[in-house]
Each structure stands twice: as C-alpha cells, then as structure tokens.
C-alpha cells in the first residue's frame, strides 16, 4: 500500500503537466534546429512528434532527456528545470535513443543489470527487474545471448526494456520502430500500449503516420524547426483534410475536374499524375465526375489519414 502513496513531489507533478515547453529554442551555430516551440504533455498520455527528417524532433527529445542544453526558452520536465536539475530528472526517465546503444561486450541480461546500477539499484533488485523485463519484451529465452546475435527487432525491444529498468515516470522514445519489419513493429506497439495502460507517460517521435495514429493520444507536427499543427490524430485529420480522400489517376484535364467538383471538395493536392481531392462526401464527388463524363483512368475513394495531413502541412519536397 506504501507504493500507492507516492512521494509528495510525484503527486504534485501528476496533477500538473509532465513536460511543459515554452519558446523552446535550439541553435547549432547558424542552424536553427528548434525555433521557439511550445507544447505540454499531460500525465498518462502518449504524445507524438511527427515531422520529416531535420524537422527538429530529435533535438527536442534530447533537450527533454537533458543531454542537450536549450539555447533559449523554458523547459520543465516532471516539474523541474532541465538546466538545473538534469540528474534528478534523468533519474525518473526512461530513454530509447534513435541509435541502438546496447553494450556489445555484455549479454542481453547484463545489459539490463548494469544499466540498472546507474540508477543505484542494488544488484539483487537489478537482476530481478532484468528478468521481469526480459519476460515482458519476450526476450527471456535470449537472456544469455550476445547483443550481436539479436535481430533488429529484438535489439529495439531490448532498448525498450533497458529504458524501463528504472521504472520511469516518463518514457521518451526517439523513432522506436524505424527500420523494423511489420511483425517486429506490431510487437513493439503492443508493448508500448501495454505500458500506457499501466499509466506511464510516453513521448515518441516517428515519421510513420500509422504509428502515430496507433499509439498517440495527441501529436504535434513539426516542420523546419516549428510546430505546424497540434491535436488528437483524428481531430487533425478532420480539421485539415476532412473525412475522405478521392484519388484520381490518369487525368486529361485536372482543371476541368476541379471546376466540376466545385465545393464538394474542401481542398486538393496535385501531383504529377495524381490528383487528391479532400472531401466530406466521396460518393457524391465520384458520382458527379461520372455524371459529367470526365475521363479518368482510375478513381479510388479512401478514408483521410494522418499522412494526408502531414503531406498537406509539410509539403512534398524531399527532406534529407
């Protein structure tokens, strides 16, 4: 029962926000990586950062987990200032960095045990947690393997397990599933959802729209160092693209089509040979095109997704 009556400081943070950033800025010399962004992460939620490469997601994560000092602005994590209380903050975080940083000289299990020691856990407790966590991420049978013998998905799960040895109040995941195959990704998502049910607040970055939609309660979309949209995934889709998307291929006259559909489309996006029409009523829109006898090679009606929002807001230029 003692565990339920957490320390007073923890009770206070649980009532207020877990992360609060205002005017947060990071510059590397002349390069503006994060340009005065503000956001708030609430207790128990999964909060996502979406954006193309170079949008400033990782810099933001690094400032949250206190290895990168902000250039300007205010950043409070678990009610503490990152500039002055990094050690205390980090003691209550779990971090999955973008690169795997597992110790190749150690076995799978030892990776967790040694990491737990950094958080001052006694050896006995460290070993107990290591075994529990290996069970949790389905790696118990690989406990004595070397890290090199693990697949990419297993390594990522081991990173997640390692981030959990300190029983963190906040889990920060920088691209948790990049490079994983669909099965490995599903398994990782399942574990993250399981964690969320236990009340662990999560912050993650991703450029997979379906990942954000599957895991996040709220997201911000970042582009060129700024936040360009914020909200629940479904709300963002509704607000920025509507309910449905009609994809038209092989058009002879795109202009004519736009004229014909008129106000049935809330917006559109033209690509080389593809026209996307955002609409609340796709059936009606398709019906009108057919009625007018316009030539279209292929027409598809689908639900609007976060990807449409993302492309609409961040454009289609390739980012490197």
């Amino acid at each position: 029962m003692v565990a339920l009556v957490a320390s007073p400081s923890r009770a206070v943070t649980m009532r207020s926000s877990v992360v609060r950033a205002s005017g947060l800025t990071k510059r590397y010399g002349p390069i503006q990586a994060v340009d005065g962004i503000s956001f708030e992460v609430r207790p128990g939620e999964c909060f996502g950062f979406l954006g193309p490469n170079g949008a400033g997601k990782t810099s933001t994560m690094k400032m949250i987990y206190c290895v990168l000092p902000p250039t300007a602005g205010d950043l409070q994590v678990l009610g503490m200032d990152v500039r002055t209380r990094a050690r205390q903050i980090k003691a209550r975080l779990g971090v999955v960095t973008q690169d795997n940083t597992l110790d190749s000289a150690l076995s799978v299990r030892e990776n967790l045990v040694i990491f737990a020691r950094y958080f001052d856990l006694p050896w006995r407790e460290a070993r107990r947690r290591a075994d529990d966590l290996l069970e949790f991420v389905a790696l118990a049978d690989r406990a004595d393997s070397k890290v090199e013998q693990l697949s990419g998905g297993m390594r990522r799960r081991l990173m997640v397990a390692r981030a959990l040895v300190s029983q963190p109040d906040l889990l920060v995941l920088d691209e948790p599933t990049t490079g994983l195959d669909p099965q490995a990704r599903q398994l990782t998502w399942e574990k993250l959802r399981q964690l969320k049910r236990t009340g662990v607040t999560q912050i993650l970055t991703t450029h997979y729209m379906e990942e954000a939609a599957a895991l996040c309660d709220r997201i911000v979309i970042m582009d060129q160092a700024r936040v360009v949209a914020e909200g629940a995934p479904a709300d963002l889709v509704r607000a920025h693209v509507g309910r449905e998307v009609v994809e038209l291929r092989g058009l002879q006259d795109g202009e004519a089509i736009l004229k014909v559909v008129g106000d049935l489309a809330d917006g559109h996006e033209a690509l080389s040979d593809l026209l996307l029409l955002y609409t609340a009523d796709g059936e009606a829109l398709l019906h009108r095109i057919r009625e007018q006898g316009l030539v279209v090679e292929a027409a598809t009606l689908r639900r609007a997704t976060l990807e449409d929002v993302f492309l609409k807001l961040t454009g289609r230029t390739l980012r490197d």
Binding site: A91, T97, T101, D103, F115, F119
Partner: peptide, 14 residues
C-alpha cells in the same frame, strides 16, 4: 563506435 557514453548519459550519470 559503441556509443556507450551516449547510453550512459541518459541515466543520472553525466
């Protein structure tokens, strides 16, 4: 190569 320092500085160690 191992990025061991990067891992350790996410813990209370700096």
């Amino acid at each position: 190569y191992e990025k061991a320092y990067d891992a350790v500085i996410t813990t209370p160690l700096n």
